[in-house]
């Protein structure tokens, strides 16, 4: 089974089974980790914000303008910030490591 690694806001590491074609947000939500994904994955909120591990940053498709705009509503945005609904899992992402970003309160 393919997998990704997600580090939650307490620093706890989770190895999650991943299926091709699933959005990273959906994988995280399916495992009941605390990610909201309020809009359901259509890049219309900023509640699935994650940081991509340095080693992986260059290996992902770049963020599109729409995603960059939506990140305006997120907090603590960094160069490696992504909305995880905009990353589709595929075999090339086997072992992808992301960190859950802080949420609005």
């Amino acid at each position: 089974m393919s997998y990704i690694v997600v580090v939650d806001r307490e620093g706890q590491e989770h190895r999650l089974d991943a299926l091709n074609g699933w959005r990273i947000m959906e994988i995280i939500r399916d495992h009941e980790l605390p990610i909201k994904g309020e809009c359901g994955g259509c890049c219309s909120c900023a509640t699935c914000h994650v940081y991509v591990d340095e080693d992986w940053q260059g290996r992902l498709p770049r963020r599109e303008d729409e995603e960059d705009e939506m990140l305006d509503e997120a907090f603590g945005v960094e160069d490696n910030s992504r909305l995880s609904c905009q990353i589709l899992f595929s075999e090339e992402l086997e072992g992808l490591r992301v960190y859950l970003a802080p949420e609005g309160v």
């Binding site: 309020e38 509503e73 907090f75 603590g76 802080p102 949420e103 609005g104 309160v105």
Partner: peptide, 15 residues
Amino acid sequence: GAGSFVPRRPPLENL
């Protein structure tokens, strides 16, 4: 729906 829309508050200390 998913509740009512309220302003998103920044996660800052002592907010």
